[in-house]
Design a protein around this nucleic acid. Structure first.
Lengths: 327, 327
DNA sequence: CTGAAAGCGCTTACAG
DNA sequence: CTGAAAGCGCTTACAG
């Protein structure tokens, strides 16, 4: 590998001068600058970021931790984060498929710190991070927890309300509510929003708990939905993928959607536009979450102030996307 | 940050001894080892990987370049790569959404090398990489090119044949063949396989060229399919996403699938199992591609020999997944 | 078994 | 404007 020494030698100058032209810092004579630049170009020399990092403490590396890369909600967030960070020349070290395993999150954070990352964006987890005061960390998919971290979450409570409201206002009489693990704050909040609305209306409802948000599980849980519950005309699905699977099974049983059964998804992911009929859903604005997470992290890195509520949360708005699976 | 010096000072030994117990290398007295380990645990000390990398040249970092994170075919490959690499303590630096832009690929490779990565796995691109002889690189989604790189690709020619064969054998008389940009070798190969089979059969066919493989484009191209072509009873879709969209439009027009129209997707992605009816597709075995790419890269890193054909390619088998969108 | 020292490739005060 | 030197946090011959 060619190093800064090699360049210096070839140009007949000191490494300091080469460093100055690379970084465009300090004063260098026009003639020497030209010569050095010429040689850099010829040799295809690129400075070793590792050596820089060691000295400067900044690696231009951001750590990203997400539970499931194959869930479009997360891949959209990731894409949005990268769109924000790339122009600033940050690279992403990604750790994914951590699922809900807090120990793996903790371990991942350690690994990232070991690599001198400048900051971390991670989906929510429970492990105690109070020891990591030196590393800027932003959590998304989470809010309303009292610690020193900044947390970004969409307004899950409102999302639940909106979904319930849509179903009731279009005439559903008996609703099945699917919900993921209640150990996850966003899931709890969404359910609270749903129940708050439903309890002040006249409709009947029942709950179905589902293990996780993958297609495999959706394929397991959906038959149970039709077996364990009856006479329902509305479903608040765990997410868009579940909604799609429920619709598929309904159609197999010659139920019309939304005629006989109305279905609402969650996430406004790519899935909601891929079926016939398309799926009414709640938009969590994944791209906004990603953008906001990236911006917040950058502010932390640059020690700028961040606008949050009194608990350190940033809450993003949700909206109902009315498609064809509701009346 | 606590450094190895701090630990050494606290333990009353030299940094060399601390280094030895961290890396479990060389001889250290049992008593001192105990004492050092104790202090490491108490202080939560983790060695700085950057400093290690600078000395050892190995960073335990692998670069991964993919064109589109929101395409499940790629996210599956990524997942498979990480499954293989995580147990070996490698981390992934990911660059994505490079699309088909060769310049961005080149730039990405440079960035990765600058970060001292141990190797690169990238989807195919055209830029000349002959200058990068020092960095182990494996390309996937590509084959049959004469250079010094190892390339991994599924058997696209065979995939094309299989898809065409399935449609013809189930009675299709007029087939529309969708194909992506013919500048991409895998696309060319697949089309060749299709045409080879079709030309020796009695069916009529026409070609529709599509710009890329995203949902947005699929939503643009599908109406054109139905407008520009008529009387067809079979479609070889560009991928599963396209197949889904074509089916959706067909159903809107009250065409029965597979009764009136048979559709075959490509990739065997998650999408193929999410519709009613499910979509017959060609399995490229994304997880095998990822696994093979990771294994091959590891061999390159460890300077082991790699089994390829005479052009440096590794070709993986494809298979037809018969679902419900064909008869 | 243990330590002093050199070196990995940079950047940045400090002199001149 | 330019260079010699120290230092970032490690690892590893080399001595003892």
């Amino acid at each position: 590998m060619t190093t800064i020494r090699d360049i210096a030698k070839m140009a007949g100058v000191s490494v300091a001068s080469v460093s100055r032209v690379i970084n465009n810092t300090g004063r260098v004579g026009e003639a020497t600058r030209k010569r050095i630049q010429e040689i850099i170009k010829q040799t295809n020399y690129v400075p070793n970021q590792t050596a820089r990092t060691l000295y400067q403490k900044s690696s231009k590396l951001i750590g990203l931790i997400i539970p499931d890369l194959n869930n479009p909600f997360y891949s959209q967030i990731v894409t949005s984060v990268e769109n924000k960070l790339r122009p600033l020349k940050y690279q992403l070290i990604m750790i994914f498929d951590t699922g809900g395993d807090d120990a793996r999150y903790k371990e991942s954070v350690d690994t990232l710190i070991q690599n001198n990352i400048d900051g971390i964006i991670s989906s929510a987890f429970e492990a105690d991070l109070s020891a990591y005061t030196e590393t800027p960390i932003v959590l998304f998919d989470s809010g309303h927890v009292n610690d020193s971290l900044t947390r970004i979450a969409s307004d899950n409570y409102r999302g639940g309300e909106l979904a319930a409201m849509a179903l009731v206002s279009s005439g559903a009489k008996k609703i099945i509510i699917q919900h993921g693990p209640l150990s996850l704050p966003p899931i709890r909040e969404r359910l609270e929003g749903i129940l708050h609305y439903l309890n002040q209306s006249q409709v009947v409802y029942e709950l179905q708990s589902v293990r996780d948000f993958t297609l495999v599980t959706a394929k397991e849980e959906t038959p149970k939905l039709f077996k364990d519950f009856s006479d329902f005309d509305g479903v608040l699905a765990a997410n868009d993928m579940y909604a799609l699977e429920i619709m598929r099974k309904a159609q197999q049983a010659h139920l019309s959607v939304p005629g006989d059964l109305q279905i609402i998804g969650y996430d406004n992911s790519i899935f909601s536009q891929m079926s016939q009929p398309t799926i009414t859903t709640i938009d969590q604005q994944a791209d906004l979450i990603g953008k906001s997470a990236a911006e917040t992290l950058l502010k932390k890195i640059n020690k700028e102030s961040i606008k949050t509520d009194d608990k350190g949360n940033i809450t993003l708005p949700v909206k109902l996307i009315k498609n064809e699976s509701t009346r």
